[in-house]
């Protein structure tokens, strides 16, 4: 990535990087678990706030693609094994990979154009597309895509909420992490 001189530098401290990524993965997992406790407000399968994406996207920004991917995959596998059925693991893997790639592409190609709001909506919409494509593969019936328009409309709302979270969290996390590194 082009704008990564500080990130590459940071990556040299591998023990610290691994520890921080573990914290991010744990946070992503807890956010997934917590949002599972909120009763689904709408009768649309696959609808959720997407709070865990906050941890994944921030990890992408702070630790580069490998870091974000590690947080996302760990989150999906751990929540899948601990809290949900294998089918759901497949759906969330579809959604998770799509949103990871969308966030990474947004950061790579439009970091100077988008705010966290646009980035987060892009990622949320991609999650829904990936999730429904996985459901299409699983059920073998394109009619399942009938939920996608509603999920996409809602993704502008949920994406805005997680975008606001990232907007608030990023400057703080960035300064804490970078400061800690410089002190060594």
């Amino acid at each position: 990535m082009k704008q990564t001189s500080s990130r590459d530098n940071f990556a040299e401290s591998s023990a610290k990087r691994i520890s921080l990524l573990a914290i991010f993965a744990a946070a992503a997992m807890m956010l997934s678990y917590l949002e599972g406790l909120i009763p689904n407000l709408l009768p649309i399968p696959g609808f959720k706030p997407g709070l865990a994406n906050t941890a994944v996207t921030l990890a992408l920004l702070l630790f580069g693609f490998g870091g974000g991917a590690a947080v996302s995959i760990l989150r999906i596998l751990l929540t899948g094994i601990l809290f949900s059925a294998p089918t759901q693991l497949f759906f969330s893997l579809g959604g998770g990979m799509f949103s990871l790639l969308a966030s990474a592409a947004g950061i790579r190609f439009a970091e100077d154009k988008l705010s966290f709001f646009g980035l987060s909506v892009l990622s949320a919409a991609a999650h829904n597309i990936g999730q429904m494509l996985a459901a299409w593969i699983y059920f073998g019936d394109a009619a399942i895509l009938g939920y996608l328009p509603w999920l996409l409309m809602l993704s502008t709302v949920t994406g805005s909420i997680t975008g606001a979270l990232m907007h608030t969290l990023f400057p703080r996390l960035n300064s804490i992490i970078k400061k800690g590194y410089n002190h060594e």
């Binding site: 988008l114 705010s115 646009g118 980035l119």
Partner: peptide, 12 residues
């Protein structure tokens, strides 16, 4: 990232 909502965000 930009700190304010941009026209690109609107496009997304």
């Amino acid at each position: 990232m930009r700190t304010r909502f941009t026209v690109w965000d609107g496009a997304v």
